[in-house]
Simulated assay, not measured.
Amino acid sequence: YFIIQTLAAAMILFASTLNAWQTGHWAITYPTCPLTTTIITTAIMMKLGAAPLHLWYPEIMQGATLNTALIISTWQKIAPMSMLYMMHKNLPTTLVLLTGLLSTLIGGWAGLNQTQTRKILAHSSIVHMGWLLIALAMDTALATLTLALYILMTTAMFTSLNTTSTKTITDMGTTWSASPTLLTLSMLTLTSLGGLPPMTGFTPKLLILNDLSMNHLLPLATLIALATLPSLFFYVRMAYMTTLTTPPTTTNTKYT
């Protein structure tokens, strides 16, 4: 984690120095050189864990505790996103949209064969970063809504997992004995993360798809809508394991 974040920070400093050399000032809010903008954007994508610079992210999440993973997947996103907000008028739109599309595709497909809840939520985060980047390329207000709802839903999910000490999908079958209320909230949070209507998570996805359609980007809208299906599958699988299954009994039964 330290190496990745340091590398990204070094790239941002290098781009800032390059920008200062070319323009005579250190402000990177309005970089004029395409190379500078591309380097900074790439570095921020690395910090966010967006595809294809995402390979470090699931491993770090798996190696951390649930509370630390919560901080990495929510609080640690705010600073890089703030830089993107400041630069949004000069961002390479094609690169941002392509990264967003790759994140939704790769995050969804890579999460299908995961059994560890932290890795699943890591790939969930990658998918949401894809939606967030696409929203940022369209409208900053929509990106703010998407980020706020993502942080809210992810915090709720991690809190639920931390309360029940759930590390794997198999463990989720035992949470029925903890609290029926917590069980219901976990299921609702998972369906909201998947973007199923009428849950809260459906709102930003609908608005983003609407914006893409209004901007005549129907192929991109179609692709990211289809890319939602794999991630929806592992959310529904987690919800199924949480609410609709019970663990096998291990009590020795004497048959007569």
Score class of each variant (00 low, 15 high):
residue 1 Y to C: 05
residue 2 F to C: 13
residue 3 I to V: 15
residue 4 I to R: 09
residue 4 I to Y: 10
residue 5 Q to K: 11
residue 6 T to S: 15
residue 8 A to K: 04
residue 10 A to R: 02
residue 11 M to E: 08
residue 15 A to E: 04
residue 17 T to W: 13
residue 18 L to H: 11
residue 20 A to K: 03
residue 26 W to C: 07
residue 32 T to I: 02
residue 41 T to G: 05
residue 42 T to N: 11
residue 42 T to G: 10
residue 56 W to R: 09
residue 56 W to A: 12
residue 57 Y to P: 04
residue 59 E to S: 15
residue 63 G to T: 09
residue 70 L to S: 06
residue 71 I to M: 11
residue 75 W to G: 14
residue 78 I to A: 04
residue 81 M to I: 13
residue 83 M to Q: 01
residue 85 Y to M: 13
residue 86 M to L: 15
residue 87 M to D: 04
residue 87 M to T: 10
residue 87 M to E: 06
residue 88 H to G: 08
residue 88 H to Y: 00
residue 91 L to D: 00
residue 92 P to D: 02
residue 94 T to C: 08
residue 97 L to Q: 09
residue 98 L to P: 01
residue 99 T to I: 07
residue 107 G to K: 07
residue 111 G to K: 07
residue 112 L to A: 14
residue 112 L to W: 04
residue 116 Q to R: 15
residue 117 T to E: 03
residue 118 R to L: 06
residue 120 I to Y: 01
residue 121 L to K: 02
residue 123 H to P: 05
residue 124 S to Q: 03
residue 128 H to Q: 14
residue 130 G to H: 07
residue 132 L to E: 07
residue 134 I to L: 12
residue 135 A to Y: 01
residue 141 A to D: 14
residue 144 T to L: 06
residue 145 L to Y: 07
residue 147 L to T: 12
residue 147 L to H: 02
residue 152 L to E: 08
residue 154 T to K: 07
residue 157 M to S: 11
residue 160 S to Q: 12
residue 160 S to V: 11
residue 163 T to K: 15
residue 167 K to I: 12
residue 168 T to M: 08
residue 170 T to S: 07
residue 176 W to K: 15
residue 181 T to A: 12
residue 181 T to M: 12
residue 183 L to S: 08
residue 185 L to D: 01
residue 188 L to N: 02
residue 190 L to R: 09
residue 190 L to H: 08
residue 191 T to I: 15
residue 192 S to R: 04
residue 192 S to W: 00
residue 194 G to D: 00
residue 199 M to A: 11
residue 203 T to M: 10
residue 208 I to S: 00
residue 211 D to S: 15
residue 214 M to Y: 05
residue 215 N to S: 15
residue 216 H to S: 15
residue 217 L to A: 14
residue 218 L to W: 11
residue 221 A to G: 08
residue 222 T to V: 07
residue 222 T to R: 03
residue 222 T to M: 04
residue 222 T to E: 04
residue 224 I to Y: 00
residue 233 F to V: 13
residue 234 F to I: 05
residue 240 Y to W: 14
residue 241 M to L: 14
residue 245 T to R: 14
residue 248 P to R: 00
residue 251 T to E: 10
residue 251 T to F: 01
residue 252 N to P: 07
